[in-house]
């Protein structure tokens, strides 16, 4: 890949979780492949959208990137530094350059801390002196559209949109180069979503930030992302610049996903029943294409051979036997 200009390169990331069953004695009865052989690169200043339905592994991917979850395999290179082998101390240092933003504005903050303490927490942990912390908080709050005086308040005194602004201020505290945004606007009202999305875009311009924008909302991702990766049951099935992905989706799952989005022009209705089935473990295990059970174009080959993730056009890749 275009490794020279990439800020972060993930290669073959893997994470599995055991499933325990049994009524009295817990035994391991299976494995969930949360993230399975996921590779991508994000250039500096770029926004990569990561879309997929619940349980597809998009949030886990974001956390693997920051090594908030230890991967079972694969590598993450951030600005040339291999993240997966760093020791604790070096990891904490490197991790200051990547920050995480959360979906749920109600659980993202300790309800007993004041906004000022919340925003300065990353700096406190990084060992910044009190004075510098206070100065930075005073600088950050106006930057995200809050006032300096609001530093003395508690999170529950703010609306959802304002809390998300607090989250952005906290994420910016250490002047990171990259922010992993995990569904940052999904819990917000539509009229507030736009404010937060605009703020994220302004900040990206101003500080040259790189975003991994995780969302299930295909509309918002289409607006904010430069390139988009589509995940299904732990694997990336398609990755392309957004105009390509939304304009000429190649993977049947991407097509199903896009056709399922309700249209807001009345009269311009969806084709009914384009979407079928629900994401679930493939009956044949993980040897074949995971989408095969729901795919309208399934072939015998799809069930026992994992489709390779290969280029189908310029900067556009997909994993489907139809495209082989």
């Amino acid at each position: 890949m275009i490794a020279e200009e990439a800020l972060v390169v993930a290669t073959s990331l893997r994470k599995t979780y055991p499933i325990y069953g049994g009524t009295f004695i817990k035994r391991r009865t299976g494995t969930v492949h949360a993230v399975d052989d996921v590779s991508f690169a994000i250039r500096r200043g770029e926004t990569l959208g990561l879309v997929g339905e619940s349980g597809c592994g998009k949030s886990t991917t974001g956390r693997l990137l920051m090594r908030l979850i230890e991967p079972d395999g694969g590598s993450v290179r951030f600005d040339g530094v291999e993240m997966t082998t760093l020791d604790r101390r070096r990891l904490n240092e490197e991790r200051r350059r990547i920050q995480l933003m959360f979906q749920d504005p109600s659980s993202a903050f300790n309800p007993r801390m004041r906004v000022g303490q919340i925003v300065s927490e990353p700096m406190r942990l990084a060992g910044a002196p009190d004075r510098a912390q206070r100065a930075r908080v005073a600088e950050l709050l106006p930057l995200v559209g809050l006032t300096e005086e609001q530093a003395e308040r508690f999170p529950h005194q703010f609306s959802g949109g304002q809390r998300q602004r607090i989250g952005i201020a906290r994420a910016l505290a250490l002047r990171p180069e990259m922010i992993v945004c995990d569904e940052p606007v999904s819990a917000l009202d539509v009229s507030i979503q736009a404010q937060v999305v605009n703020l994220l875009q302004d900040l990206q311009q101003q500080f040259g930030l790189t975003y991994l924008f995780i969302s299930h909302d295909l509309r918002v991702v289409r607006h904010i992302a430069d390139r988009v990766a589509v995940m299904y049951l732990g694997r990336i099935v398609e990755l392309a610049p957004k105009a390509e992905l939304y304009g000429s989706p190649q993977h049947p799952y991407t097509r199903m996903l896009l056709s399922a989005v309700p249209k807001t022009k009345p009269g311009a209705t969806r084709t009914p029943t384009a979407a079928a089935g629900e994401a679930g473990p493939a009956p044949g295990g993980r040897q074949g294409c995971l989408f095969a059970p729901r795919c309208p174009h399934v072939m015998p080959r799809c069930r026992d051979e994992i489709p390779a993730f290969r280029p189908v056009a310029d900067r556009h890749s997909a994993a489907c036997h139809l495209l082989g």
Binding site: S159, Q162, V190, I192, A194, Q195, V197, H223
Partner: peptide, 24 residues
């Protein structure tokens, strides 16, 4: 009108979303 403008466009392209200022 404002609510409809808040929805990100799915066909064309727009530089900025038009939100509604203030809070509910």
């Amino acid at each position: 009108g404002g609510l409809l403008r808040c929805i990100p466009d799915f066909d064309g392209d727009q530089d900025r979303l038009v939100g509604i200022d203030g809070t509910v």
